[in-house]
């Protein structure tokens, strides 16, 4: 059987290791994002934040994780049991799947093999991100419905309609960017931005970035758009009936979503693993790759901080305000941006 299967085993192992590394890195970063969130909240609210577990409280996320795992697992009697378990799993799966197309760095050279630090540079990378995001809604919807609780169901419907509404504006803002790049391959988009004489996409598409950023907040269910978990009106949102690590998965998937959307924003608009004012081709490939990874991570950390900064600064929107902003402001704005971009491209080609 194995002789008949024509698989490049070296490539297979290489990709498998890469997938494992990226998934564990995402989980680890998400773990420490929960800690960073509480620290940032502490700083913004003029209090120390968690500082008991370990020096400066750095073991806090492990304590939290242990607490979630050790808690009693409660599955409500009237819930739809299979879907109740499926919900958080889907949320987590969709959150992790997006990292497959993000270019995390340039090529590494180990023992004569060139290893691209991207799991798959597919032809339709940007669309893949959208597809996975749109599938991510099911985690919320299924969980909320299977709980058999009116508040959960309402929150789930809110979450889904919010995600669908903002996906539209997000997609339209992306079209303008794709018109300037001319490709949907994320690896290619980064290479274009790295080319000498070419600025980062943010310089060409500032408006698209602004719309994308707002939509990313809405897609991640982050304040000011955290209506699916508005505790003052819905008790606690779509994960109200969840306990233990299932709740942990929902909370965790939000952080992973934040991490990945920061990575996507850095890739699309801020040059990905490009270091400004540095010609990477002069360095040796491995050093350049490592520097690139560090640069990408720095950009991601900045965006994550922005997510947290906004959360602890801006109050929550009302539901009708949310819909008005999405459909009546962002969608027309994105359409106008698309038209202007198209006109400018035509004019430049003349």
């Amino acid at each position: 059987m194995t002789t008949l299967l024509a698989i490049d085993w070296a490539l297979f192992t290489e990709k498998l290791i890469l997938i494992a590394v990226i998934i564990f890195a995402s989980l680890g970063i998400a773990l420490y994002m929960t800690f960073a969130e509480r620290k940032v909240a502490g700083i913004l609210q003029d209090r120390p934040g968690p500082n008991r577990a370990g020096p400066f409280g750095i073991f806090q996320p492990f304590a939290d994780g242990l607490k979630l795992i050790m808690k009693e697992e409660i599955i409500p009697n009237t819930s739809n049991k299979a879907l109740f378990v499926l919900g958080p799993g889907l949320a987590m799966l969709a959150a992790l799947m997006t990292c497959a197309v993000v270019p995390w760095g340039n090529k590494l050279e180990i023992a004569g093999r060139t290893i691209a630090l991207q799991i798959a540079d597919i032809n339709v990378g940007v669309l893949y991100v959208f597809a996975v995001t749109s599938v991510g809604v099911y985690g919320i919807m299924i969980g909320g419905w299977a709980s058999n609780n009116k508040f959960s169901l309402l929150a789930a419907l809110r979450g889904a309609s919010q995600a669908i509404s903002y996906e539209l504006a997000m997609g339209l803002s992306m079209i303008a960017v794709l018109m300037t790049t001319g490709t949907l391959q994320l690896g290619e988009i980064v290479k274009q931005q790295m080319a000498p004489g070419h600025l980062w996409n943010i310089a060409y598409q500032p408006l698209a970035f602004l719309i994308f950023l707002i939509c990313a907040f809405a897609e991640c269910n982050r304040t000011p758009f955290d209506l699916p978990e508005a505790e003052s009106e819905l008790n606690s949102g779509y994960h109200q009936e969840y306990s233990s690590m299932k709740l942990g998965f929902y909370l965790f998937s939000e952080y992973i979503n934040m991490f990945i959307s920061s990575a996507i924003m850095a890739t699309l608009f801020f040059g990905g693993y490009d270091v400004p004012f540095l010609n990477e081709s002069l360095l040796s490939p491995n050093v350049a790759a490592l520097v690139g990874i560090i640069a990408l991570m720095a950009k991601i950390v900045f965006f994550i901080f922005l997510f947290m900064w906004v959360r602890w600064t801006v109050p929550r929107f009302r539901y009708d305000q949310l819909m008005n902003l999405g459909w009546k402001k962002l969608v027309p704005l994105a359409l106008a941006n698309m038209l202007i971009t198209g006109a400018v491209i035509l004019w430049l080609q003349k």
Partner: peptide, 24 residues
């Protein structure tokens, strides 16, 4: 690839969400 991804975005990601909405 384009057809595959658009199939997911449009059918699995949008239309079925609306189906689910109505049924729920």
């Amino acid at each position: 690839q384009f057809l595959a991804i658009v199939n997911l975005i449009v059918y699995a990601g949008a239309i079925m969400v609306l189906f689910l909405f109505v049924i729920m």
